[in-house]
């Protein structure tokens, strides 16, 4: 068996090469992760993984948090009121939610009027444009939140980290104050790059009174609004996961069949 015959490109070598490649990439990522940022808080999200789904009740509470707190500063340009039905709200509830908001429109004679919003209207923006948004927020415009969970390294964990990561000025170490030149008027956030964030702490214990009676701790509010924002970023996630499981099962069966056919065809050559 083992005279030094010409070695074939064997599986073992491929595995070794693969392992070496992984090691290189791991080393690369570790090197970046080792910056001065603290690790993001660990949080269980039901929408992670191939069988993930959104927690409808949490996302509905999250919408309440968005509506009562975040919507004062942040737009959600890609959403329409009708989309809320996907979170399990009824058509009438959605009509009611929309109707609380006044949007401008043209009347039949072409004059600009205000009217109550309909489910077919997009979410109303808090500011007419980016300049106005920046002017009202100390020079930094609050970003649109429609795809925010996809738009940040760390995703849902990062947003949750931002919302729960504020440290009041009194609790900062002199070293932190010096290193990041923090003043009394700044907001210090553990997870924001550079730590000084233009957003004042939006949430705290008791900030919203949940309609469903859930206890309104800071962590609960943050977790709920992130669930809502995750849905807003990937509204088709559940459909995608379900389709994915079916497609992969189908491909597995096809691969098995093809393997059988291939073996049968090659039987006389082996």
């Amino acid at each position: 068996m083992s005279k030094p015959t010409p070695t074939k490109l064997s599986l073992t070598k491929l595995v070794l090469a693969g392992a070496a490649a992984l090691a290189v990439f791991a080393a690369g990522t570790l090197a970046t992760a080792a910056e001065d940022m603290p690790p993001l808080p660990k949080h269980e999200w039901g929408f992670k993984g191939p069988f993930g789904t959104y927690d409808r009740a949490a996302a509905q509470r999250g919408f309440q948090v968005y509506k009562e707190v975040c919507s004062a500063c942040h737009s959600l340009n890609l959403l329409y009121y009708r989309n809320l039905q996907e979170l399990g709200l009824t058509e009438n509830q959605v009509k009611g939610i929309a109707a609380e908001v006044q949007v401008s429109d043209l009347s039949d004679d072409g004059s600009v009027i205000d009217r109550p919003a309909r489910p077919s209207d997009p979410f109303k923006k808090p500011f007419p444009n980016e300049l106005a948004a920046a002017a009202a927020n100390g020079g930094k415009a609050p970003p649109d939140l429609s795809v925010i969970v996809k738009a940040r390294e760390g995703g849902a964990d990062y947003i949750y980290g931002i919302l729960t990561g504020y440290v009041p000025f009194e609790k900062l170490t002199p070293q932190q104050i010096k290193e990041f030149s923090v003043t009394k008027d700044d907001h210090f956030n553990l997870h924001f790059p550079g730590h000084r964030i233009a957003m004042p702490p939006p949430l705290e214990d008791g900030k919203v009174n949940y309609i469903d009676g859930t206890k309104n701790t800071l962590q609960q509010e943050a977790s709920d609004v992130v669930e809502f924002l995750a849905w807003a970023s990937e509204p088709h996630l559940e459909d995608r996961n379900r389709t994915g499981v079916r497609v992969i099962l189908f491909l597995l069966v096809m691969a098995g069949l093809m393997y059988g056919v291939k073996r049968a065809v090659w039987a006389d050559k082996h």
Binding site: G49, R240, T243, G244, I248, L251, A255, Y259, K262, V265
Partner: peptide, 23 residues
Amino acid sequence: YYTMKDGFGLMVFLIVYAAFVFF
């Protein structure tokens, strides 16, 4: 001979591809 072998290889490749597309 090779249409069938390619077919099998393609299916295996598509499984990995689909795992990324969907998950």
